[in-house]
Design a protein around this nucleic acid. Structure first.
Lengths: 235, 235
DNA sequence: CTCGATTTTGATGAAATCTTGATATAGGAC
DNA sequence: GTCCTATATCAAGATTTCATCAAAATCGAG
């Protein structure tokens, strides 16, 4: 199972300072980043500005009803919302959940349970964002699939060694731009190797042999003499 | 807000007949279709056969632990699971949620709250792309049935040890993609073992011996030197 | 406790990858 | 043209990683 991303930013919308402090401790303690708002309005504006990965919201806010905040958030965001409330009444739970909250915890609650439910919510969110990613890059008849770590040339698979793949990856991330020798060496081998330009020549030749139609007349893996290399994008 | 699809099929895994009847009434009353299983094994097989849109599961089953059922479901399916339990203990909740449950309700609970939490779960499921895996997976002449935890090679069953099965399961869940050594070790043995790449070699050889036609020239269980392994999908 | 299955561990040879140095080529300065 | 520098190519070790086998340790059912 995928581990929840560490350092995820959690926005706490809660008017009572002691509870905010309590939540801050618990969250930071579990490796999350923390942001806070004391009112509904502030919460909405921080949500828009900071794009947290999850919202924990108290229902009893001074300026506006937590339910209303929830509804407003749901008009434009799918961020997971965990609602906290002192009210155990079933109707309150149903209302909050139907307003768009993802979970409802009755105060007082255990930190362990809060964290577990938070992991559930982040799990959902992660699954959502995963399949929206397009992780391929193409040039010429070459197609690179980063999720599969696979390079295709038309219908057939091209096998790249770890170093070849890393170099290509770097060139793609800066595609169109020149990547200096130093930079390419650092990204591929690490800082200590930043003067071994000979390595680059060897591996660039390898890449060209595998990816270019005519390795002697490269169309994509371009040498910039004295500077570095560049992946030319289709135009 | 998206209204939960009407007539969604809900599978109830619960050994006590009175509770099953109670849930059936409540669910049918709210416009859902209903299916039931009295044991964990029956639940797993009905899940595979009927493809319900949500599972409600009691933790106290006669044949196997509800947590174990949850984990096994999560090996191949993302169907929402709402756990019911008489145990209010925080640890039980955390365990169930971390095992893969999406919500945890303590008995007795109100029908209104159950329905609201069910709507939340279905809302999530609707947002998710249909990445519900099939309960079987095939490559070459191998057929894997996750619900039965059974591997067939043509007409005959192939016996896999627990570790072999876990490794194969992970490779299948990421099929087509390279699974790094670390990742594979973590998923199979747990985080502490993430450097024991020797284990992988031993078990990969075992799997190939059992699953490949020519273990020396694997067609499916592919080595990516220096990176990890990959289950190549038929194309 | 005993037996059989499974997992862990160590040893060995094979394969893939990386490094290194030697040599070839291209292009600019003069 | 020659000289010079930067780049390209090639292939032989050196090194790392992998496959395979089998013995030892561990686990679990009866």
């Amino acid at each position: 199972m995928s581990i929840a991303k560490k350092n995820a930013l959690i926005l706490v919308i809660e008017d009572e300072a002691p509870i905010r402090r309590f939540l801050k401790m618990a969250l930071v303690d579990h490796g999350f980043s923390f942001s806070e708002a004391a009112t509904g309005k502030e919460g909405l504006s921080k949500l828009a500005a900071e794009r947290p990965e999850l919202v924990i919201m108290d229902l009893g806010l001074p300026d506006m009803d937590g339910l209303e905040v929830t509804r407003q958030i749901r008009e434009w965001s799918n961020v997971p919302i965990i609602v906290l409330s002192a009210r155990e009444n079933e109707n309150d739970k149903v209302e909050a959940l139907d307003a768009g909250a993802d979970d409802y915890l009755v105060k007082p609650f255990g930190v362990g349970e809060l964290m577990a439910r938070l992991r559930v919510a982040l799990r959902h969110a992660n699954r959502l964002s995963e399949d929206q990613l397009d992780s391929t890059f193409a040039f010429g008849d070459i197609q690179v699939d980063f999720a599969k770590r696979q390079v295709m040339r038309g219908p057939e698979e091209i096998h790249l060694t770890p170093i070849e793949y890393k170099m290509l990856n770097t060139l793609i991330r800066y595609s169109g731009k020149v990547v200096t020798h130093k930079h390419l060496l650092r990204e591929t081998w690490g800082g200590e190797y930043s003067d071994e330009t000979q390595y680059l020549r060897v591996y660039m030749a390898q890449l060209r042999k595998k990816l270019e139609l005519d390795p002697a007349q490269p169309k994509y893996l371009i040498t910039e003499p004295g500077v570095g290399y560049r992946l030319k994008v289709d135009s």
